[in-house]
Structure formats: structure tokens, C-alpha cells
Amino acid sequence: MHKKQSRDIFLFILGGVVLFFLSGMVDELRVYQGATIAIYVIAISSIILLTGYSGQVSLGHGALMAVGAYAAAVTRIEFKLPIILCFVVAVLLAAIGGALLGAAAARLSGPYLAGTTLALAIGLPSLANQFTVLGGEQGLLFDVGFPPLSLGEEFTQYKWFFWIAGLAALISMWIIKNILGSRYGRTWRAIRGNEVAAQLSGINIARSKILAFTISAGIAGLAGALLSMTIGTVSPSAFPLALSFSLLAGAVLSGLTTLGGAMIGAVVLVAIPEIADVVAHRVGSSERVTTNLPGFLVSALLILTVLFVPNGPVEQHRARKAKHLALKK
């Protein structure tokens, strides 16, 4: 166990080093997309933790991301704290929001929970218009500042975003992986498998579910703060219902129970607008088709995945391999 862990640490660090070197070799747009992928990886893994492991569906993660983003921006503007502390505040506040939501969620199941969080996702961003400190419809500026001079003259802003987001993604994946491998991860899986049996073996169902919601919300808050970092502003329109849907789609595409698959979903989410663009260009379609094609593709992919690869590509591949091996014997 110990050996495996140190190997994992090594792999994570190696992955980070490779990514950082890669960021120096591609153009600005790719670097920006890389940052977006890293942010989606974080957000998707928060959903995998919640839905795949503890079996709770949340459509409100867009709203929780908004909580994190606003928390970071407000601390940055009002208290001028260093950027890392802003992210910490984002995680903490989103986690508190998640704990409250989780307390309500622990009493609900399946479609009830989904509908409640859906109502939240639609409702919460509009609350920003109620408080002047949140800047209304225009939102707030969120400026993480220039990259430190020690990184050299040519070090661009986008590369700086990528470094921050990439590092955050590596660290949060590492933490999630360890949580899922711990007692808590097993507890959640037990609850998802059979709630009554889990209760019989002494698991406090409500408390575990709230814990899952809290952790997941904290991670989502981090993703939200990072997302608004790359956009430069925080406004209600940055966190539409479509964001919550895309995240869920990303998680389903990744395979709800395979954390390592988060990468697949994130890459697909970033690639789809590009693919849609190419397709629309080829076909020479009108503007209204072009603007709505990405949304259509994400939703269609979501349905197709649920119908034909319900447990995600990674799990599917694993199952097929296992079957193959069994046949050989």
C-alpha cells in the first residue's frame, strides 16, 4: 500500500512536470484551452465524487461554482488578500454552502434531489442582483495579477492561468483520490450500493451524505474561482444552467465511477465547441445553427452515453477485457 502510494505521488509529479513543459511549446489558444480543461477536470471530479460515489445527483454545481467565484472575487477586491488565500476562501465558503445544501439533500433522494438542486442552479445566480457588493448583472472584476517577474519576460498571462489551474487540478485530484480510497470513500460506495445494509453496519447515512456534499461543493467552489480567473470577471451569466448540465455530461462521459476518466469528459467539453465550429463551417450552416450546435452535441452525447455506455468508456473497456480474459480461460 505504502509503495503504491509513493509510486502514485511520483506519477502525479511527473504528470505535472510534463504538462508544464508542454505549456511552453504550444500556442496561446491551446494554453488557454489547457487551463479550461484543468478547471473542468476539477469540476467534473467533484461531481464524480458526489454522484458516482455517494449516489447523489446534483444539478446545482454551477451555482456552487458561482459561490466560490464570488467569494474569491469579493475577498480579492475588499480585503486585497494574496490570490492563494482567495482560493482558500472560495473553497471554504462553497463548502459551507454545500454543507447547508447537503443537510437538505440528505433527506431527499433521486429525482427529488435533482429537482431541488435544479431550482437552486436557476435561482442562485440571480441573487447576485440583490446585493450591490456582488456587482449585479455586470458582475465583479477578478484579477489575479501578472505572473511573477521571476518566471521571465515572455511568460504570458494565459500560461500563468494554466500553471495555476494545472497545479490546482493536480492537487485536488490527488486529494480526491485519497479521500475516495479512504474509509469515507468506502462508506459512500456502501450507501450507494444498499442504504439499508450500510445503515445496519453502523454507518451514519445522513452524516456521510452531508460530508460528501460538503467536500464536493468545496472542490466545485475552487473550480468556480479558477473559471472566473480565466474569464477575468464574475457575473451571473458565467454560471448558467447550461454549465451545470455540461458538468454532469462531462462526468457521465468520463464514467461516473472512474475518477481517472475525468480527463476524458473535460477534453470532450472543451473540444465540442471546436468540433461544432469545424462542422458548421464545412456544412456552411446559418448562424443560429452554429451557435446552438455545441449545446446540441453535449446533450445528444449525454443521452447516447446513458443509453449505450452507461458506466463510462473506461469501465466499459475494463468490463470487456475482463470478459475476454474469462473466455480465454
Binding site: 445527483v57 446540441f296 446533450s299 445528444a300 443521452i303 446513458v306
Partner: peptide, 18 residues
């Protein structure tokens, strides 16, 4: 499988998007 509970929710949401 683990998706059984959430599959209808996800499918109808996808349909909404489509």
C-alpha cells in the same frame, strides 16, 4: 449498475438540452 438510479434523470435532462 451504479448508474441505474440516475440514468432517467440524466437522460431527460439531455433531452431538455436537445
Amino acid at each position: 449498475g451504479p448508474i441505474a438510479g440516475v440514468a432517467p434523470i440524466i437522460a431527460t435532462l439531455g433531452l431538455l438540452g436537445v
